[in-house]
Design a protein around this nucleic acid. Structure first.
Lengths: 125, 125
DNA sequence: CTGTATCCAACGGGATACTG
DNA sequence: CAGTATCCCGTTGGATACAG
């Protein structure tokens, strides 16, 4: 069953749309941070603890990009010690639905993909 | 409205699921090739012509990865000159739905994101 | 607590030329 | 026609140390 009438959304402008999506979500930590922030407002340290393996550097960088793109709101409190809170904006929340669609696809198909990889490696050596 | 009960799909295993998705689709050409192949079986040259800007090298590499992952079937005909046909497998076709969900999100939200970027650049210089 | 700054290795991917 | 083979550059991101 072809969905060719719809894939023009992807191919329409020579891939610029696809590229635009991927430019926003296609780095190592973005989707993970967005998914984590779906539980509500969190502080820098909360995120750092809840996302295993992320460095301070990458957490900061990714949050800055998300803020710049209007997916995350950053609130600085003039306190000592400093407190900074991060929350998803409406746009940020709206990303979760398609992200979940993708995650569902992965959960359903990745095992088969892994098997295919093994078979391919066996064929080719 | 939080979808926190569902985002465990994304965060569940410390991000390995998300990473698994992105490892497959998060390069420059994969989604574009899959979307193009949704119209049916195509030859190497067909793809090369229908995907603006892709090099032979990247087309070959991406197709090989798609074949290895079982998303694309590659058929070689023993003819002169050579003929090779590429078709989406069932798994490959199944990727189009979530990809379209993402494309819809992009079409709807990217303009706002671009505006947010401009505003951010103005704020920060 | 919330970041910056610096260095560096790995990888993706473009350009170009060559081949069965 | 359908690729391979090189070269090479820019970006991503990890490790570590430092700072307001």
């Amino acid at each position: 069953m072809s969905q060719y009438e719809h894939t023009c959304m992807i191919r329409g402008d020579g891939g610029r749309t696809v590229r635009a999506i991927l430019d926003h979500i296609c780095n190592k930590w973005t989707l993970l941070i967005v998914a984590t922030l779906d539980q509500g407002t969190l502080r820098f340290t909360d995120l750092h603890q809840q996302i295993p393996g992320i460095s301070q550097r990458m957490l900061t960088l990714t949050l800055r990009n998300l803020e710049r793109d209007g997916l995350v709101a950053r609130t600085v409190f003039a306190e000592v010690p400093p407190r900074v809170e991060y929350t998803l904006t409406a746009t940020g929340k709206s990303l979760i639905q398609p992200a979940l669609a993708l995650a569902s696809w992965a959960i359903e198909h990745v095992p088969h993909i892994e098997a295919s990889r093994v078979a391919y490696a066996t064929r080719t050596g």
